[in-house]
Each structure stands twice: as structure tokens, then as C-alpha cells.
Design a protein around this nucleic acid. Structure first.
Length: 213
DNA sequence: AGCCAGATTTTCT
DNA sequence: GAAAATCTGGCTA
């Protein structure tokens, strides 16, 4: 059910953060180093769009968020709650701050290393949630600003398999602009984070996919 | 299955 | 000095 990996080119990334958030569900995030490869299928994203008070770029560039203003396809990695990192993909033209938070992966390669890094056994505890996935892949501030369309260590790929059914809901863990439905995920995928009420039933609705697999 | 409190530190007001 | 795009373990609010 998965073909060979093909690196995503910048030209095929939508030039719009909300569309990019939909586009990235079903794509692959790859971590390569001398010990081998860790990869996972992106099953949940959130868009933090232009003019959005919940977006870290809303009040303009600071030392922390400056890479969020890079051209689409670059990484913005921030540190939060004293112990976690989270990975975003920039979604607009250079100079415009907006991006897509990668919230959950379905593990593909490198599961033993993910287990060691996370200190847990259960497959669904490895990469379910933004902090967990960053820890499983060893992502930290050193990855901030990488170009995911050209970097050797951290990059985006497609295996040609599209997401089955895409749904959207409100975003998780924010207070500002909390009603906007900018969270996207694959329906009925057990690696998606968040409360059940958002993932099943009336808390979410079906949306059209963005592009091919 | 759902909800809550505590951990922990950077960042900006 | 408070808030923060979270996670974990424990209790049933």
C-alpha cells in the first residue's frame, strides 16, 4: 500500500497555508541520519494562517519565530511547556509569517529508535501529538529553518498513496480564534490525536482533499 | 473514556 | 510575571 518515496518539490506545495495543511495529510515526513531512517505518514495538521491571532507570527518577527517568515516548505521548530518541541511547515511567500503544525504521524520506518527516544512501547504513543512526534524523530531547535524541500536530514516526501478521507475540526490547545476549523486529519486513523468528540461525530466534517497522493 | 493537575523553561509583556 | 500550538499519570470532578 505504499510506493517508493519521492521528495516533494516546492513548486507542488500550494502557496496558501490552509491548502498546504490539507495537502500535507497523507504525505511522508522523513528523518535521515547516519544511524538510518525514521519516517511517518502525516495524518493530522493544523493551519496557522495570515492574520490569525493564534499564529506565532501574528505580532511580527521575533528571534523565536523568525523562520516562520521563510518561504513555504521551510521548517519552524519551537520549544513549548518547558519540555517539548513542535514542527511547522511554512506556508506562504518569504516575508509572510504563517505555517502548518504537524500534529501526528503514522509510524513507517525506524520504530525501534522511536520507542527508545520516547521511552514507551505502544505504537500509538510514539507519534500521536506534536510533542511526541518531534521527540520520536529527534527534532529540536537545530532543525529550525531547514528547507524541507532540499535538506538531507529532514524532508517531505510522497509515496503516492492519498489520504482516504479528510476531515476538519477546530484546533487543539489554543484560546485565540478557537472556533476556526483549521485542523485537518485522516478519518478513522488511530494515530490522530485529540479528543474523540472532535474526531468522530459532529465535532468534525468531511472536506475535499488538496491535490494528488 | 473523560477530565484534571502538575511538570518545566523559554519568550515576550 | 504570566502564558504557552503538550504530555503523563491518576482519579472519577
Amino acid at each position: 500500500m505504499s510506493g517508493p518515496l519521492r521528495r516533494l518539490r516546492r513548486a507542488e506545495l500550494p502557496v496558501d497555508t490552509e491548502r498546504l495543511a490539507r495537502f500535507l495529510v497523507g504525505k511522508i515526513l522523513v528523518r535521515d541520519d547516519r544511524r538510518g531512517r525514521i519516517s511517518g505518514r502525516i495524518v493530522e495538521t493544523e493551519a496557522y494562517v495570515v492574520g490569525d491571532a493564534a499564529c506565532h507570527a501574528f505580532r511580527g518577527p521575533t528571534p523565536r519565530n523568525r523562520s516562520l517568515f521563510l518561504e513555504r516548505g521551510h521548517a519552524y521548530v519551537y520549544f513549548i511547556y518547558g519540555c517539548w518541541h513542535a514542527l511547522n511547515v511554512c506556508g506562504e511567500a518569504a516575508g509572510t509569517g504563517a505555517g502548518v503544525l504537524l500534529r501526528a504521524l503514522e509510524p513507517l520506518e525506524g520504530v525501534p529508535r522511536m520507542r527508545r527516544r520516547r521511552g514507551v512501547e505502544r505504537l500509538t504513543d510514539l507519534t500521536r501529538g506534536p510533542g511526541r512526534l518531534a521527540q520520536a524523530l529527534g527534532i529540536d531547535r537545530r532543525d529550525d529553518g531547514r528547507d524541507l524541500c532540499s535538506d538531507r536530514r529532514l524532508w517531505l516526501a510522497s509515496d503516492g498513496v492519498p489520504a482516504k478521507q479528510l476531515r476538519c475540526s477546530v484546533r487543539i490547545g489554543i484560546s485565540r480564534e478557537a472556533r476556526r476549523k483549521l485542523r485537518f486529519f485522516e478519518a478513522d486513523n488511530s494515530f490522530v490525536s485529540g479528543p474523540r468528540r472532535l474526531n468522530r461525530g459532529a465535532g468534525s466534517r468531511v472536506v475535499a482533499a488538496e491535490g494528488e497522493g
